[in-house]
Write a protein that binds this DNA or RNA. Sequence first.
DNA 1: ACATTAACACCAC
DNA 2: GTGGTGTTAATGT
Length: 229
Amino acid sequence: MMTIDFRRETFPIALPGIFSVPKCPSLFDEIPETTLKKGAVIFNELNAHLFVYKVTKGMVRLYSIHDGKEMLEDYYQPGEMFNCEALLHNDQGEMVAKAMTQGTAVKKISVHAFRQAITANASLYEKVLSSISASLSRTQERLRSITLLNSQQRVVQFLASHTMKSGRRVGYEWVVKPAMTHQEIGSIIGTGRQTVTTALNKLRKNGIIHFNRSYLIVRDMEALLRLLD
DNA sequence: ACATTAACACCAC
DNA sequence: GTGGTGTTAATGT
């Protein structure tokens, strides 16, 4: 009877994880996950300092509010940690995290426990850094996109990168399931939902994509990428 | 020209 | 019924 199934983390080589999704395997393994409905609050400005989280299913949106309007700050996908800023002392302002999609699941660990874990396992600290670094890169990329591209190009660019990152390859096509709402896509790329709808419909009319409420298929990724030249 | 906003109908869960 | 989508008209830059 073999019961030894612990996977101990050893890093003989320090890999520059440029393309790797920052993960935190051992620390969150034992934690039960919480499943949330779309729109459910994960943390708000009052309790943002208490926990560090990891997404296990679905997507999480992080936003702030200015003059009653929501400003999307960042978003997170399965395997990614978020709210690592809570480990630092500086206040991030009034941030709220919500489940972006139905059936989003997260795990959480208290800031105190996380700090203790870091003292026992220094490689955790690197994961915190790469998580924050990945968040910064995403935000820079969104800023660049909003500055340099028009809304149609932004839709195309987001669609291509999001599909290749989170979609499943099926033959020559890519399937993204569950589909994001046009509203959510709009908040990420900084445009209105009508603009997203019309841009997606144009792509659908050209046979490059197909979509309905539950999934989205990229039929011709090369044609999609060609639109960015 | 490009994009946003408001408005309305339609449809799915 | 609520929320998401398709479409158009008015308006702004």
